[in-house]
Amino acid sequence: MTEAVLELRNLTKRIGRRNIVDNLTFDIPAGEVFGFLGPNGAGKTTTIRMIVGLISMTKGEVRIKGVSVKDHFELAMTHVGAIVENPEMYKFLTGYQNLVHFARRHSGVTKQRIDEVVSMLGLQNRIHEKVKRYSLGMRQRLGVAQAILHRPSLLILDEPTNGLDPAGIRELRDYLRKLTREEGISVIVSSHLLSEMELMCDRVAIIQSGKLVDVRSMQDASGAAQSKILLEAGDPAAARQLLSQLFDASQLAVSGPYIEIAADKSAIPNIARVLVAADIEVLGIHSVQKSLEDQFLEITGGEMVV
């Protein structure tokens, strides 16, 4: 693993007697799209705002490219581009003036760079119009443009898809992919839209009640442990009896008319053979990929019982 672009160490935010964010520790390596997932109120936004200094931290540390946000805010922020919720721009300025405004804060953003970003996001035709005449999708693009002007190492997106229609979401996703590929930057995205995260991210952290519940790679997610086989048999009880010889009891479960078997589809031929040999009617058998949504609900649901 390459050097971490973002490091969180025991990050905590306490408001009143409650820890909104509780001892978060994780790293994001260079070039990774990292998702930050959790139900509403889990502390995603608070964490992201602590990373960018909008909210003070009660305890812990955030380092961006090794620079502490608390001690050297200005230096740390030179590496960061951010879209915090819907990118609100100065509506009385043109798109171009808005970009100039944000470019001025960084040293070394040239006119050429602004033009380059403008054409990369396909804004060149309307960049000299006032932002108040932009659609939400165009504002979103301008928001992305603003965030990448100074070639940041880390792009932070807080609920970037809020208020976007499906086409807009897709567009944003494509830009992010393009950015990580072409500019090699790390991205941290927070969202409660699971399907989006599944498509966008390399790794996902799930947080609940301010605590880190799980960090998992999306490659694993499509692996064996995350898929199951659904079996519909004429005599479920007998089928189950039979299958318990093949699988652990923990791998078997009954849901409605189905028997769920936690195994990947390479086990199907074997299951079918055994059932047919025992003369049990097989009405249906298929493998199901567990989506991130299932995993998410499983994980957060489990937590709530405890």
Binding site: M77, P87, E88
Partner: peptide, 14 residues
């Protein structure tokens, strides 16, 4: 009011 405060503060300026 404009909601621009977040973008304004998230930058290399104290």
């Amino acid at each position: 009011t404009w909601g621009t405060i977040k973008l304004l503060l998230v930058g290399p300026a104290s």
